[in-house]
């Protein structure tokens, strides 16, 4: 979905995206304490698998992005996790370009990280149902913001290729619903089994 190939975006967009991506990556790596490494690696693996595999849906096919879930579970560390996943996808499968890595990273990581930072304070193990619904809403919104970023960047770079709003909605709205369901389910499960994976140490949302 959100893997923009080489040669589509204009130089200013590429430069801005690369700078922002590098900034997020630096923030994430600075906050990466030793005990966060396994969790970050696990979610990098989950993101890599989930966003590599597409399933047909109507006239198009979609794959999960999991920006909301990764943002909830990792905070800023979502940037290194998603970066590794994107780098491997670009190298192994030719998903997205290498020059657009920074832009793609911002598109997929930033909405989840920002929205999860807002939602996390209302998520606690004491009220799993409310937390799961909130996590689902975060995931759905993250997909929509990602779609808006992708569409905006392409429209700014190449007005001839401006994505059609109707087609964008047809592709991303079902995905938002699916992501919401998956994220809500995973949140519910984790709050019961391993609440510390979601109800994070205070350091998660900030730069520790």
């Amino acid at each position: 979905m959100a893997h923009i190939p080489d040669g589509v975006l204009s130089l200013p967009i590429l430069a801005a995206g690369t700078l922002a991506g590098a900034g997020g990556l630096a923030l994430g790596i600075r906050g990466l304490a030793d005990r966060d490494i396994p969790r970050t690696a696990l979610l990098a693996a989950v993101f890599f698998i989930a966003s590599s595999l597409a399933f047909p849906l109507g006239p198009t096919s979609v794959h999960l992005l999991l920006g909301g879930l990764v943002g909830l579970m990792l905070g800023w560390k979502a940037f290194p996790a998603i970066f590794v996943g994107l780098l491997l996808q670009a190298l192994l499968f030719g998903f997205g370009g290498l020059t657009t890595l920074g832009v793609d990273l911002v598109n997929m990581a930033l909405p989840g990280v920002a929205l999860a930072a807002l939602a996390r304070r209302f998520i606690d193990a004491g009220n799993p149902l409310r937390s799961a619904v909130l996590a689902g809403a975060t995931a759905a919104l993250a997909v929509i913001v990602t779609a808006a970023l992708v569409g905006g960047e392409i429209a700014l770079s190449e007005p001839a290729f401006t994505p059609a709003l109707g087609i964008m909605a047809a592709a991303y709205l079902p995905l938002a619903v699916i992501e919401a369901a998956v994220t809500a389910f995973v949140t519910l499960y984790l709050l019961k089994v391993k609440p510390e994976m979601i109800v994070a140490p205070a350091s998660l949302g900030t730069v520790a």
């Binding site: 893997h3 595999l53 047909p56 998903f95």
Partner: peptide, 10 residues
């Protein structure tokens, strides 16, 4: 679950 329709999205 995802291994069944193992297709890239491109």
């Amino acid at each position: 679950l995802f291994a069944l329709p193992a297709e890239a999205h491109r």
